[in-house]
Amino acid sequence: MTDYADREPFELVQPIILLVDREEPAGADHGIAAVALASVQAFMRDPENPAWPVWAAGAFAKSVRRADAKMFAKVLAAHPEHVLSQVGGASAAGLPPMPAQELPKLLAKLQVSGTQLPEGDPLPDAPLRIMLNASLKMSTGKSAAQAAHALFAWLIEAGQGSVDAWADAGFPLTVRQLDLTAFVAGQRSASGPVIQDAGRTEIEPGSTTAYVVAVLPRS
């Protein structure tokens, strides 16, 4: 099942490519954080790209695809507009939005479903935290897409002072996997929207998946 099943033919999606090294794969939370960071840094690099407002007016659709080291290098070379984001040992490349049904062949042949990284070490605490609903038992790829949704939603609603403070600090970011009780309780402290999934893959429509808690100066 693809992540753009049932989409309109020209609905825009943001491709994000996650490096899944066959010999030394990164930990899951590192990969999730790298994907989320790649999503927002691609926007911050070129916010004047006319595709962004059209995409943001829709469902913030993302296509998180995996590539081994060889294919990842090919993607970087073929798409110089990419932004490379790294968190610990994880790397992800973010691209601007493009029509889901017109992805370049190199991207279209990369796998979407079933992306799973090993648990790995937890990320250190940071002033910007992405909280994930672990009770949904999402794959690494699905969790990464939801984390990217939450981070992007925070970015566009946060004051410029908060975004600048985060960027000036080097984009510190962590991921927390919460059981249902803690996830629901923590929503009261959310710094942006609580993400509800459309239910196209893995989980039921309307499932609450992620939100951001940011402890940053306000504008």
Rank of each mutant, 00 (worst) to 15 (best):
A77S: 07
P122G: 08
V184W: 06
A28G: 14
M131Y: 12
P80Y: 02
V75I: 08
P127V: 10
V64A: 06
K109V: 05
V213D: 07
A77H: 06
A56S: 13
E11P: 03
M138V: 09
A144M: 05
S207Q: 11
L216P: 05
E102K: 00
L37F: 09
S135I: 03
A126L: 12
L19Q: 09
V163I: 15
I130E: 05
L117K: 01
D164G: 05
A148S: 14
P122D: 07
L103R: 01
L132Y: 07
F60H: 13
A210Y: 08
P217D: 05
D168V: 13
H79M: 14
T174P: 07
I156D: 02
E157T: 15
L12Y: 00
D168F: 09
A90V: 10
T181L: 09
Q177D: 13
A93N: 01
A153M: 08
R7D: 03
Q160G: 15
G27D: 01
L12C: 02
A169R: 07
L123F: 11
D29M: 04
V40P: 08
L151N: 00
P193A: 08
I17D: 04
S189P: 00
A158K: 11
S135Q: 10
G192F: 06
S189C: 01
L155A: 03
A28W: 13
D68T: 01
